[in-house]
């Protein structure tokens, strides 16, 4: 058990380190370096940046400095917004992104899993067909198409929800729907096929042969096992909800981190790009770690295997 936790923790740290390194050197590989802009900078900002980043230092020293900054949770100043730090940009956008992201994640689990179960239990009957048709549409139509069509229909034509912003609680509907649509479908399909596969397992036959009631067989023996693959993909789901927020926040004009990120790309705000990437990665690593721990609870074999190593 401890072995497994330590192993996962280590993997998380190594990955995070790899991400920081990769991001740093990628951004410094930009022709001309990250801090030489196409536009001329005001000399004092240039000086401040130079001072902050010791730009005349050799690259490895800059790298160590940046690493030290990240470790003390300081992502440095924004390069384009004078006087604003990357930390402040993230802090500003975080509530919006967190709220929509968390709601989307809840939708994914709370809708995707039950839909998959209903489909599997009604295999080849109409509820199954219905769920599969919707889920197939959901995985095939890109989220930005869903978002724009929904925006046009529900906000512009019908006026049921605001076209942008989250001031009104109804403003959450479309962004969350667009953000989670693909993953609800994906999880529904996964949960369905996983449950169908579990239902075929020998131990399900054993459970029935023991005379257990149908509900016990299904929920106690079937569901838990079939949820293991679903839990496995929750890490990537979080990652994709985060990156998905780039377009969604742009379409619905939400002032979240994703919008800031896209903006900083357009502005070539390299420190912001670097900082937000690392922030995303850190959030993701933590989520993956949580998922790994969840996995440990669901599947006793994991603990055993890790300890055996």
């Amino acid at each position: 058990m401890t072995a497994y936790v330590v192993q996962r923790l280590l993997l998380m740290l190594v990955t995070l380190f790899a991400i920081i390194t990769l991001t740093f050197f990628l951004m410094h590989a930009v022709p001309g370096g990250p801090f030489t802009s196409e536009k001329m900078l005001q000399p004092e900002i240039q000086a401040a940046l130079n001072a902050k980043y010791h730009l005349d230092d050799p690259l490895w020293l800059q790298y160590l400095n940046y690493l030290r900054g990240v470790l003390s949770l300081d992502l440095g100043p924004s390069f384009k917004y004078a006087g604003m730090s990357v930390n402040e940009i993230i802090a500003e956008g975080l509530p919006v992104t967190m709220k929509t992201g968390a709601l989307a994640l809840i939708c994914v689990v709370a809708l995707g899993v039950p839909l998959g179960i209903v489909a599997a239990l009604n295999r080849n009957r109409w509820p199954d067909t219905l769920v599969m048709v919707i889920a197939t549409i959901g995985v095939a139509v890109p989220s930005y198409v869903i978002a724009t069509v929904a925006l046009y229909v529900f906000a512009l034509r019908l006026g049921w929800v605001p076209t942008f912003g989250l001031d009104d609680w109804r403003g959450y509907f479309l962004p969350v729907f667009a953000l989670s649509g693909f993953w609800i479908s994906f999880i529904a399909r996964l949960a369905r096929s996983s449950l169908l596969e579990t239902l075929q397992q020998d131990y399900m036959m054993t459970a029935k042969a023991k005379g257990l009631k149908r509900g016990t067989v299904l929920f106690k023996h079937g569901l838990r096992n079939s949820l293991i693959p679903v839990v496995t993909v929750l890490g990537p789901v979080v990652a994709n909800l985060l990156t998905g927020s780039f377009v969604i926040e742009q379409i619905f004009a939400l002032p979240g981190i994703g919008r800031h990120f896209v903006l900083s790309i357009t502005n070539r705000d390299y420190t912001a790009i670097m900082g937000i990437t690392i922030f995303y990665a850190a959030v993701l690593m933590v989520m993956i770690f949580i998922v790994d721990m969840l996995y440990l609870v669901l599947d006793p074999r994991i603990k055993y295997r890790a300890d055996a190593k």
Partner: peptide, 10 residues
Amino acid sequence: DPMTSLNPTL
């Protein structure tokens, strides 16, 4: 098959 006829998570 005793390897598969017991539920692995209980």
